[in-house]
Design a protein around this nucleic acid. Structure first.
Lengths: 153, 153
DNA sequence: TGAAGCCATGGATGCCATCGACCTGCGCCT
DNA sequence: AGGCGCAGGTCGATGGCATCCATGGCTTCA
């Protein structure tokens, strides 16, 4: 992980469909060298995936909400997590410090679907209560931040 | 926007670096046809960007937190937003219904940096108070959800 | 029923991914 | 000090891919 790797990561975060030739021009190496570096970053798990970012409204997912979950005192966290994992509407799931054990980002088509989702989560064994906040608008999402050398950090 | 477009979007959300030839095989069309469809989806803004998903720890961003912001009663929302926008640590920013006007996802390297960021946000004119919750672990993030035809939704 | 437009097909062409061979600089061992 | 081995680079070749263009079919609307 050196400065060139960080630049490659930055370039791929800006445009994951860049060709290796293009990346090579940008960082001043040959295409095979870039190919090998990117392959190693993928193998190391640093580059996890390449994803298209889609306008949610265009695919019928116009409602975004954040849901906090308070667990029952005796809840089995693994069971709760497994139940959450199979709900496709849950885009992100963080295990949090604080009263609310989980914080979810969810995406559905309509307020009615959001209601059904909340009911389903509340019925999940181990879930004591939920707190939902609806996003009126998304100012920005998943904005890439320039990486730093973790050794320096 | 038909079923094939939705499948193309799904394939690109799973792997944004798929070649057009590969996409064509998956959906049963020719490569030029896929090329044209994807181009139109990009032009329409449905496909916004292609991004590499990076392990945050590997680029020195191991601390994730969610911050809620309560605005001053007389705050100019545009000014607050502009101040937030120039903070690179803020990965996502939603304008919310409820007491907390904004909900942020932030990513920093250390708890000390998180503290500095919170101070900076609290000092921003128009910000009355903030509430921060730290993510102990990320169960999953940005999991793609199968799209639906928005006309049906 | 006819015409027009949209869209897929198939071929051609130049660029790209990718493999193998070789080179170079550095650290280590003798 | 000198040579060995390795990590990581360039170069060249080749097969596949992106992309443009001309052609032809299907649908839709008058």
């Amino acid at each position: 992980m050196d400065a060139i790797d960080l630049r490659l990561i930055g370039l791929l975060r800006d445009n994951a469909r860049s060709s290796y030739a293009e990346l090579a021009r940008q960082v001043g190496l040959s295409a095979p060298a870039v190919h090998e570096r990117v392959g190693k970053l993928e193998a190391a798990g640093t580059l996890r995936a390449y994803r298209a970012e889609v306008e949610p409204e265009a695919i019928g997912l116009g409602v975004t909400a954040l849901i906090g979950i308070i667990e029952d005192s005796g809840a089995d966290t693994d069971d709760v997590l497994a139940a959450l994992r199979i709900m496709p509407e849950i885009e992100s799931c963080y295990f949090m410090a604080g009263v609310e054990s989980y914080q979810l980002t969810v995406r559905v088509g309509t307020i009615a679907e959001l209601e059904q989702l909340i009911v389903r989560i509340n019925r999940t064994p181990g879930v004591a209560s939920t707190r939902t906040a609806i996003a009126l608008s998304t100012k920005w999402e998943n904005r890439p931040q320039p990486g730093r050398d973790p050794a320096v950090g």
